[in-house]
Amino acid sequence: MRLLTEGVVDRTVVLFGAEEDPDPQLTWQRGITLLADDGTAASHEPAGPAAVVGWSDAGLDALAYAAAHADLVDRVVLVATPKPGDDSLPFDAGDIRAKCLLLFGAEDPLTGARHGAWWQRRLPDARLEMYPDGTHDLLVPTWKRALSHLAPRCKR
Rank of each mutant, 00 (worst) to 15 (best):
L139H: 05
G59C: 08
L26R: 11
G116T: 01
G112L: 06
V8C: 05
T5W: 04
P152S: 09
L3V: 09
R2H: 06
Q120P: 02
P109V: 10
V52H: 09
L103Y: 06
E45I: 15
K83F: 14
G39H: 08
L102T: 09
A51Q: 07
G7W: 03
L123K: 04
A36I: 02
E19K: 13
E20W: 01
D61A: 11
G39L: 11
D95V: 02
R2V: 03
A42F: 08
V79N: 04
P141G: 14
F91R: 05
L3T: 08
D61P: 01
L15I: 07
A36P: 12
A80I: 06
H115K: 01
R122C: 00
G39C: 09
A42E: 07
K155E: 15
L128V: 12
G94P: 10
R156C: 10
A98V: 10
H69P: 01
L34H: 01
D125P: 03
V77L: 05
A47N: 05
D92N: 15
W28Y: 11
Y65Q: 01
P84T: 09
K155S: 15
D95Y: 12
C100P: 12
E20I: 14
D137L: 11
C100Y: 08
G116P: 04
E45V: 15
P22I: 14
H115Q: 05
V140W: 04
K99A: 15
R75F: 03
A126Q: 06
A36W: 11
V140A: 15
L150W: 12
V53T: 10
T135A: 14
E6H: 00
K144R: 15
F16N: 06
L123W: 11
T142Q: 12
P24E: 08
C100A: 15
T27L: 01
D38P: 01
L72A: 11
K83Q: 15
Y131I: 04
A98K: 06
S43W: 10
